[in-house]
Design a protein around this nucleic acid. Structure first.
Length: 505
RNA sequence: GCGGGCGUAGCUCAAUGGUAGAGCGCCAGCCUUCCAAGCUGGCUGUUGUGGGUUCGAGCCCCAUCGCCCGCUCCA
């Protein structure tokens, strides 16, 4: 409890800082906001762009076996029929909490037989009517119970209800394993819209709930338009939409979010190998960008946790202040998706290997990461409170965002120590040189230099270059490290090279 | 979705049912030769929104939106 209160404070501070410094705003805030949607401000958009750029560099640009793609958000609705997203869209469903089986709520009944206060029988049954449910319940029980029910038929009180009409507080039972079922609900998780001006059933379309299906739908196009061959991957970054019942935890569960997904196609016999490869590769990617390994976990899914299409799955999880939650899932989706699309589209999805003369539908390993979740994790990781000495040498509280330099929204800030003696002019020139060199640079001459340092600390700027009295004499300035507060004197014309080297560029 | 808490200036918070305030920040200047607190002046509100009660509502009532916490959920 204490820990959660502390954590809550940390999250509150982070949310406040994000708003104050322009990382993240609530969407449509002037109209009272809208639940589950968020905007990235000037610093936030730079941070998020840097994360996406790092991902693209590391998964596409630096590799020979992955190509990129950018699909439309709205696709032919048949895509979602094939993927399974649209199944039973309008029917209330219940899920078994134990065995994960799913049923239409109007086809599952709870049957209870009571002899006075004595419950003889309480089961779930798949059926169309009350009578069928009762019959199924009797048929499914053991012979002893069946005899008691039949012998005392006149004393037995039957309670039978449909899963979507359960009395308040009553829970339904799984017809297969006897486990508890969730409440009945509609899975209208996809945002629905209409293509064209007419709003009728023939024009219904959906905002994609994942970018993956666009990749599967283009798998043939990529094979035919490039000379890439399995094992190979297709990567995409893009927005997806899910009408989450309960958005929560700042940007963590949003209704509009950005995904970074790879679908990696390989021979079925190599799927396990590639699954292990990508699981480790993706886990290490986050560590390389500064998430500490003690807060990062790689958690393999239990068999019962696996979705129907997955043979194996592991989550990269991060210990957020509000709990351990998923950043990315790496799944072995087998040939499920391509087979589905082959079935629904009638197009052949098999790949013919000229060397082995073998024809097969590739299996797919899917590393699927949440860009906004990664951004939030990097924000949480970066948030640090420490102390720095003030002008009298007394320690003062300091808030600093310790972003990995590669992700920092601003790479370098350039200051004149004081606003006179030509220092602003010199500093401006250096600032301009940094910008020309492609470094995100910020110029500030307002107020005391200590205040400017602190402002940059909150923005997470790794380096501050300060022009002082000595600059005019020997063309050197001080460059200050965000984390250590240490300063070095370097030549004014070395600022770009210095920052680049520290960024690892 | 259920239960609880909260919503006042950019931020943190005050204000018996009776004239909406403070600190910080921000802006303009001054002073400042290296780590936020010096000086002068200035800006800021349909008290989340909509109704209702009242002579009078930031305060009481209802609804609604949003945020936080706990359950639930996350094919």
């Amino acid at each position: 409890m204490t820990q959660q209160n502390t954590s809550g404070d940390l999250m509150e501070k982070l949310v406040a800082l994000c708003k104050r410094r322009g990382f993240i705003f609530q969407s449509s805030e002037i109209y009272g906001g809208i639940n589950g949607f968020w905007d990235y401000g000037p610093l936030g958009v730079e941070l998020k762009r840097n994360i996406k750029e790092a991902w693209w560099q590391d998964t596409v640009t630096k590799r020979d076996d992955i190509v990129g793609l950018d699909c439309s958000i709205i696709m032919n609705p048949k895509v979602w029929e094939a993927s399974g997203h649209i199944v039973n869209f309008n029917d209330p469903l219940v899920d078994c909490k134990s065995c994960k089986a799913r049923f239409r709520a109007d086809k599952v009944f709870a049957v209870t037989a009571k002899d006075g206060e004595n419950v003889l029988l309480q089961v779930g049954a798949e059926a169309e009517t009350d009578e069928q449910a009762k019959a199924a319940a009797i048929a499914g029980t053991n012979s002893k119970t069946r005899r008691r029910v039949e012998d005392h038929a006149d004393r037995i009180a039957w309670e039978i209800w449909r899963a979507d009409k359960a009395p308040a507080g009553a829970s339904n039972l799984c017809p297969l394993c006897g486990g508890a079922l969730t409440d009945a609900r509609k899975f209208n998780m996809m945002f629905k819209t209409f293509v064209g001006a007419m709003e009728d059933s023939s024009s219904v379309a959906y905002l994609r709930p994942e970018t993956a299906q666009g990749i599967f739908a283009n798998y043939k196009n990529v094979l035919d338009s490039t000379r890439i061959r399995p094992p190979f991957g297709i990567a995409q970054i893009g927005k997806s939409f899910r009408n989450e019942i309960n958005p929560r935890n700042f940007t963590f569960r949003s209704r509009e979010f950005e995904q970074m997904e790879i679908e990696f196609f390989c021979h079925p016999s190599e799927a396990d190998k590639w699954y292990a490869y990508w699981r480790d590769e993706r886990y290490n990617w986050y560590i390389g960008l500064g998430l500490t390994s003690s807060k990062l976990r790689l958690r393999p899914h239990e068999k019962t946790e696996l979705a129907h299409y997955a043979k194996a799955c592991a989550d990269v999880e991060y210990q957020f202040p509000f709990g351990v939650s998923e950043l990315e899932g790496v799944a072995n989706r087998t040939d499920f998706d391509l087979t589905q699309h082959q079935k629904f589209s009638g197009k052949d999805m098999a790949y013919f290997d000229d060397e082995t003369k073998q024809r097969y539908i590739p299996h797919v390993i899917e590393p699927s990461g949440g860009c906004d979740r990664a951004t939030l994790a990097f924000l949480c990781e970066a948030y640090t409170e420490d102390t720095a000495p003030d002008e009298n040498g007394n320690p003062q509280a300091r808030t600093v965002m310790k972003f990995h330099p590669r992700l920092a929204p601003v790479k370098v800030a350039v200051f004149p120590l004081v606003k006179k003696e030509g220092m602003p002019e010199t500093a401006t020139k250096i600032h301009q040189a940094c910008k020309r060199a492609g470094l995100a640079s910020f110029y500030d001459e307002k107020g005391a230099v200590g205040r400017r340092y602190r402002r940059q600390d909150e923005a997470g700027t790794p380096f501050c270059a300060t022009v002082d009295g000595q600059t005019a004499l020997d063309q050197t300035l001080t460059i200050r490290d965000r984390d250590t507060l240490k300063q070095e004197r370097i030549s004014t014309d070395k600022v770009v090279a210095y920052v680049r080297e520290k960024l690892g560029l």
